[in-house]
Design a protein around this nucleic acid. Structure first.
Length: 541
RNA sequence: GGUGCUAUCGUCUAGUGGCCUAGGACAACGGCCUCUCACGCCGUAAACCCCGGUUCGAGUCCGGGUAGCACUACCA
């Protein structure tokens, strides 16, 4: 019988969603879509002490931004959280009643017991016995319903004494876990401890119990999660068995971890701060500890680039293809092509992906994304210099901005970088790059510029922007009218083309950089070009 | 310490016993293009953790080392 594919992403609202978690969500999503199944989102908030306000919204918004769609459970819809599906509630904190039933079932069937040991007592035990483990060897020395008379247990509970329910792990049994990525994993139950399943202190189960109960009730067919869960997978198998659900137990797939780019170990929040790149999809303001974490979205990343980048960190298709759309990923993804070993987070590759996807966007789209950045930059300059340097009237038209963006986009990886590449279009140079001057500003340059100024003054406003496209050998060459004016003049006086043009460039840009000079003069216009020329001539005497 | 997982260029990876003189991509380096800086294009350098075994033949299978990582909570 073919079981309907139902997978879930079950984050904990303890802060911003880590990029590794995003990848787990992505793989779940790809798997669900490929099999025409359901992608669920469930919130695992069974640790009341670690709850962070806003984390849930953050997680849902991040997935929404990335295009990782949710079919059931909690999801974001136009900025509002909505719940869909008939297997709810989808927040574990709202499922207390359900867990009570199953805790009782385990207690009644003898698969679990009640324990009263306080944290302090447990600590003492750990200090006393090296490698202490609460299990078959030690549980009879502890304060629990296995060692105490039933009426005493009832009395303590009635008194309001805090207790936990522990899973009774049978010793010396080889537990087999079939993993879709790693094959058969066998672990002896002796190394498992009697895990806490439920704590009366906050009337909530722990992850292990809630996870099994929910996956069963929500009819999850495949559990795709990080490798850090592999060691507890045998416990989960035992739990399914204790409930009598082994026949409908989901399949497991444990994903390799995302590692630090330098050194070793799991990628952590700290690494982002330390190495200067985001480890979260969106910027997050943690209300609990007041920290702010940078995000991919705010850093100028395109969601499709983040998806592509993440997809290839631990998975690879059959060929040499690197660029994948979400639809292609859905088609090509397969768990047996997921690597077994951890992947160091290659931030440089991420930048490259963003560059690729940026080039695929239209100039108009990029201009729209760049507009807020531009406005902000211009306003800070304006306040700093009392608007002396703003040369381009007040507003830049969308059309004009798209044109500018088109000239420089191939040299940036991120939208905000457009400013560094295009700032001279909006602000006249106030100083001239020393290195460029040293190399390109010659003794004759002031005289050359003087003559060039005179020459350019003769060009009509109309001719200034004129150009024609020459097509030959599939190459499109733009011949500008100004080119036809200036080049003969250079040739006639036997000036060096490089010498004149570079000096001219410095006058307009302030440095030896930027797109083709006639593109610059076109955008700047005659008036502004000549003004910058005059300013430079007097400044660089 | 215990248990488990993993091991190909600096990084992500292709490789499922002969197609491997180990392929691609990022990064690095060099060249070309060019009025500049970039982009782009072309090229260079760069890896099978070690030791055994199986086999006519091993990066690929097996065993043992070694190393890295994860887990070892009334966290998830």
């Amino acid at each position: 019988m073919e079981r309907r594919v139902r997978v879930r992403f079950a984050p904990s609202p303890t802060g911003a969603l880590h990029i590794g978690g995003v990848r787990t969500a992505l793989y779940n999503y790809l798997f669900a879509r490929q099999h025409g199944g359901d992608m669920l989102l469930r919130i695992e908030d069974t640790d009341s002490t670690r709850f962070v306000p806003g984390a849930e919204e953050y997680i849902l918004e991040a997935l929404d931004w990335l295009g990782i769609g949710i079919d059931e459970g909690l999801r974001m819809n136009n900025g509002m959280i909505e719940t869909v599906g008939s297997h709810g509630p989808y927040r574990q904190s709202e499922r207390r009643e359900i867990y009570h039933t199953y805790v009782k079932q385990l207690l009644d069937s003898g698969h679990a017991y009640i324990a009263f040991d306080t944290p302090a007592e447990l600590d003492a035990k750990r200090a006393e016995i090296p490698n202490f483990q609460y299990d078959a060897r030690t549980r009879m020395q502890m304060r629990n319903s296995l060692t105490m008379p039933a009426d005493e247990v009832q009395a303590l509970i009635a008194k309001g004494e805090k207790y936990v329910v522990r899973f009774k792990v049978e010793p010396d049994e080889d537990v087999h876990v079939h993993d879709l990525i790693r094959g058969e994993v066998v672990i002896n139950s002796n190394i498992l401890d009697d895990k806490v399943l439920y704590k009366s202190a906050d009337d909530l189960p722990t992850y292990h119990l809630a996870n099994i109960v929910d996956d069963h009730l929500m009819e999850i067919s495949h559990v795709i999660r990080g490798e850090e869960w592999l060691p507890s997978a045998p416990l989960h198998v035992l739990l399914y068995r204790a409930f009598g659900w082994e026949d409908s137990m989901p399949e497991f797939a444990h994903l390799p971890l995302l590692l630090k780019p330098d050194g070793n170990g799991k990628l952590s929040k700290r690494d982002g701060d330390r190495l200067g790149f985001p480890v979260f999809p969106l910027e997050f303001h943690n209300q609990k500890d007041g920290t702010v974490s940078s995000g991919y979205r705010e850093s100028g990343y395109l969601p499709e680039a983040v998806i592509n980048f993440l997809a290839l960190l631990g998975w690879h298709g059959t060929g040499d293809q690197e660029m994948y759309t979400m639809d292609q990923l859905i088609k090509e993804f397969s768990l047996d092509r997921v690597s077994k070993s951890g992947a160091k987070f290659d931030y440089e590759k991420g930048k490259w992906f963003n560059h690729q996807y940026l080039q695929l966007r239209s100039n108009e789209e990029l201009a729209e994304m760049f507009m807020p950045v531009l406005k902000e930059k211009l306003s800070t300059i304006q306040t700093k210099t009392q608007s002396q340097t703003i040369s381009n009237k007040d507003a830049v038209s969308n059309h004009q901005l798209a044109k500018i963006v088109g000239l420089v986009k191939d040299r940036v990886n991120f939208v905000p970088e457009l400013w560094e590449q295009a700032n001279f279009f909006f602000v006249a140079p106030t100083e001239y790059d020393e290195k460029s001057l040293k190399k390109r500003w010659k003794e004759d340059s002031p005289r050359h510029m003087q003559e060039l100024l005179a020459l350019l003054e003769t060009v009509s406003e109309e001719d200034w922007h004129k150009n024609e496209q020459m097509v030959n050998d599939q190459m499109v060459n733009t011949i500008w009218h100004l080119d036809k004016v200036v080049m003969p003049w250079i040739a006639e006086h036997e000036y060096g083309v490089g010498i004149v043009m570079n000096a001219f460039r410095i006058c307009l840009v302030g440095a030896a950089r930027g797109p083709h000079i006639w593109n610059i003069t076109d955008i700047l216009g005659k008036e502004e070009t000549l003004r910058r020329l005059r300013t430079a001539i007097s400044a660089l005497q």
